[in-house]
């Protein structure tokens, strides 16, 4: 190997460590017995996990986040899939404007979105409500659904639908029996994106949260910002393990399929 190539690999290896390692440092920290965060812990315990599962503030925020994320996933799948079908197959006016509008929520800084919806939702009484969170998070998540579903629609062979119709299937049954099963991977991808976008969203949450409703990321945010609460390490570890489990399952499913 040329020296240049070796240097390149060393740099990439360091970058990979930089990308991955910090994520895993939270795992041992979460098992510390100390009231202060320490790494490595001098004594081990599960007290911060216990704290999470017994403290209603943490539990409520986790449940709120779950509830919001599930509703966001459903709503953005419906709105996003319909829009993707329209954008890929339909003819409609003001094309550039509409696709710009659909992509805009990803591109506008979340601080601005947060400020804007906070002002509007205050007037409507939607702050600190599930509905308020679902509306905002759906706006932020729906572009990802549109992108993933559109790309599976673009590669979809429309002759399959014509075949179904020539064989006697009406529009609804063609969509349900042929189109939907075949774009399902795109829908699943969009659903994962939508769920994660909502479940992980802090910035707009900081604006919309309050005593009546606080999401998990916002709770973690104040757990780091205001006072350093080691429960955050326990929550982080659990989130990490859930993510890894989801990826491992997805990987296994893909392998079994192929």
């Amino acid at each position: 190997m040329r020296p240049g190539r070796i240097a390149l690999w060393v740099l990439a290896a360091l970058t990979a460590v930089y990308l991955v390692l910090p994520v895993f440092i939270v795992i041992p920290t979460s098992f510390s017995a100390s009231s202060f965060l320490e790494f490595p812990p001098k004594e081990w315990s599960g007290r911060w996990y216990e704290n999470f599962f017994t403290d209603p503030v943490w539990l409520d925020s986790a449940l709120a986040s779950l509830r919001v994320a599930v509703l966001v996933t459903l709503l953005s799948l419906v709105l996003g899939t319909a829009a993707a079908l329209g954008m890929v197959r339909g003819r409609y006016r003001l094309r550039a404007l509409v696709s710009g509008l659909v992509m805009a929520p990803v591109l506008v800084p979340y601080v601005i979105v947060g400020l804007a919806v906070y002002a509007t939702f205050l007037e409507l009484g939607l702050t600190q409500t599930t509905l308020g969170f679902v509306l905002v998070h759906t706006a932020l998540a729906v572009p990802y659904v549109v992108i993933t579903v559109s790309s599976s629609l673009v590669s979809f062979d429309r002759r399959l639908e014509q075949a179904a119709m020539s064989l006697g299937a009406g529009p609804v049954s063609t969509f349900a029996r042929v189109t939907l099963p075949l774009i399902a991977p795109g829908l699943a991808g969009g659903a994962v994106f939508a769920f994660v976008t909502s479940f992980d969203e802090v910035v707009t949450g900081v604006f919309l949260s309050g005593p009546d409703l606080t999401t998990l990321p916002v709770q973690m945010w104040s757990g780091v910002r205001v006072q350093i609460d080691p429960t955050v390490a326990a929550v982080s570890t659990m989130l990490l393990l859930v993510t890894l489990a989801v990826f491992a399952t997805a990987g296994l499913l893909r392998r079994r399929k192929s």
Binding site: R159, A163, S166, L167, A169, G170, P171
Partner: peptide, 20 residues
């Protein structure tokens, strides 16, 4: 009449078999 009510059989270019 829409295609699914025409009762005509059709074989497509590249077959259009349902892959799923």
């Amino acid at each position: 009449v829409p295609p699914h009510r025409r009762e005509l059989g059709m074989v497509f270019q590249h077959y259009a078999l349902f892959p799923h």
